[in-house]
């Protein structure tokens, strides 16, 4: 069981959170020509790194805020948590 530090509420059990996916994925720019390959990459394809991974988490049973978590997928160590506007 992970203990995740919500940037707003502090340390809480993983029970209170929901995983929200890869935080590094960027939506293709609006009003530009987007190839099928780029849409595929945005919608379906994800990297599966061994090591540090920037993720989105939702404190769904707490303050209901989204935030970013820098987590090591091999050791489950949480290196840093930050608000959405912040970067590691």
């Amino acid at each position: 069981m992970l203990e995740i530090k919500c940037p707003y509420c502090g340390n809480r059990s993983q029970n209170e959170f929901a995983y929200g996916g890869d935080a590094t994925v960027k939506r293709p720019e609006l009003n530009t020509e987007v190839s099928d390959q780029d849409w595929d990459n945005f919608v379906y394809y994800r990297k599966n790194p061994r090591g540090n991974h920037l993720e989105l988490w939702h404190h769904i049973s707490g303050c209901r805020q989204w935030f970013k978590v820098l987590r090591n997928t091999a050791t489950h160590d949480i290196i840093q948590t930050m608000e959405m506007k912040e970067n590691p």
């Binding site: 509420c9 340390n11 809480r12 059990s13 029970n15 209170e16 769904i60 049973s61 707490g62 303050c63």
Partner: peptide, 22 residues
């Protein structure tokens, strides 16, 4: 609830889960 209540005092509040219920 998994909430850490060791430092919980009067006029503290928190949202958490209780047997899976928010």
């Amino acid at each position: 609830s998994p909430l850490n209540l060791n430092n919980f005092r009067k006029n503290n509040c928190a949202n958490s889960v209780y047997h899976g219920i928010t």
